[in-house]
Amino acid sequence: MQEWVAAGQHWVISVNIAARHFHRPDFVDALRALFQKYPDAPVQQLELEILESAALQDVQQMRQMMRECQALGVSFALDDFGTGFSSLSYLKRLPAETIKIDRMFVDGILTDPEDSTLVSAIVGLARAFDRAVIAEGVENSAQAEKLLSLGCELGQGYGIAKPMPADTVLEWAARYLAVKT
């Protein structure tokens, strides 16, 4: 993150965090220590992703931990949204800034009207709760176009880029932007 910021890129960096890490009493202190060690990495650019199903295990504890991290400037994404049993009630209780639409819904949006309807509904929920929404598993431009038509403007998946080492991201981004302009 520090290197990318030094290169003029102020991307939000999302990191998957297992729920068990939130149960560690020193989690927030460890996070704070990391940002003290790397002072040129803006804490506001870190987004922690938690699985919806993991967040549902202990909502009160998860909510408290999220609030403590948010007080540092960290944001949260609720990953695999829609796969849990209590998505609507917990959406209200968990203070995540972003909802990530699970790839199983994105996979079928071109062929299954129900998947398309579910994605549209999740986008509507995100807007109603003033949350950002990202589609996971965007594998091709047809899916990306359909997601855009449903109001989902952010996505991730092999259709955008495959996973790559951190030291190759700047070069890839420069090529990607050159092609898009």
Rank of each mutant, 00 (worst) to 15 (best):
A7D: 15
E49C: 14
L46D: 11
T117W: 10
A132D: 08
D79K: 08
H21E: 09
D102I: 01
A174C: 01
E153T: 10
D115Y: 09
I109Q: 02
S53W: 07
A166E: 05
T111F: 02
A41N: 01
A174Y: 00
Y38R: 05
S75A: 03
A178K: 15
G108P: 03
L125V: 00
G155N: 07
R103D: 11
M65F: 07
S89V: 06
P25T: 09
C69S: 14
D40G: 10
E97F: 00
V74Q: 12
M164F: 04
E171P: 01
R93G: 03
I17L: 13
F81W: 09
L147E: 01
G137L: 15
Q61G: 04
L46T: 13
L31Q: 03
V133E: 07
L51H: 11
A142P: 00
V138S: 05
V169A: 14
P39A: 05
Q45S: 12
I99T: 01
E145W: 02
V15W: 02
L31P: 02
Q44D: 15
F129Y: 11
A55H: 11
L34S: 13
K37A: 08
K146G: 01
F105A: 07
L118S: 03
I122K: 03
G159T: 07
V15A: 07
D130C: 02
M1G: 07
S86N: 14
E145I: 12
A77W: 06
A33Y: 01
D130Y: 02
L72N: 15
D167L: 04
